[in-house]
């Protein structure tokens, strides 16, 4: 599907605005997250899973961002969903894209977002016994970790 067709399909199915600059992005509510992923993979042909991450917008809560590409038609799509303030759960894209596995583990590690239906959600970059989720804005970059000062 080309870029225009993609935009039209997204607008019609999800009824949301698709912004196109600088990269085509679509924001949905968290309950339609997995549906959006499946739609992107099966209908829009975006089979290349680039990355999945999150942004901490302080009072407005967390936002989960994923990027998928359609390599055949050269279309990039940024999928976003705003979890509300205080919400830390989101449905997982692992059943749709296998690459979301490690990316969601990293999101859990760094932001504390628990992904439902994830096969093996545990910390990936930090130790299993680490307390706190570093990339939240409330975590200071030089938080000391005993026994090291």
């Amino acid at each position: 599907m080309t870029a225009e067709e993609t935009r039209a399909a997204l607008a019609s199915t999800f009824g949301v605005e698709v912004t196109s600059a600088p990269v085509m992005s679509v924001t949905v509510s968290p309950d339609r997250w997995e549906e959006l992923g499946r739609f992107a993979k099966e209908t829009l042909g975006c089979r290349f899973f680039s990355f999945l991450s999150a942004v901490d917008w302080k009072e407005q809560g967390l936002e989960v961002v994923a990027k998928v590409d359609n390599l055949d038609d050269n279309v990039s799509l940024l999928l976003k969903t705003r979890l509300g303030p205080g919400v830390t759960t989101c449905s997982s894209l692992t059943p749709v894209y296998r690459g979301a596995d490690w990316m969601e583990r990293e999101c859990f590690d760094m932001f504390g977002i628990r992904f439902e239906n994830h096969p093996d959600l545990r910390r990936i970059l930090l130790e299993d016994t680490w307390e706190g989720h570093p990339l939240l804005k409330s975590y200071a970059v030089d938080t000391p970790h005993p026994p090291y000062r």
């Binding site: 930090l126 970059v141 090291y148």
Partner: peptide
């Protein structure tokens, strides 16, 4: 050095 996961020198 200011990172949370970095040991500030191996002599620790």
């Amino acid at each position: 050095r200011h990172g949370y996961h970095v040991v500030k020198g191996v002599d620790r």
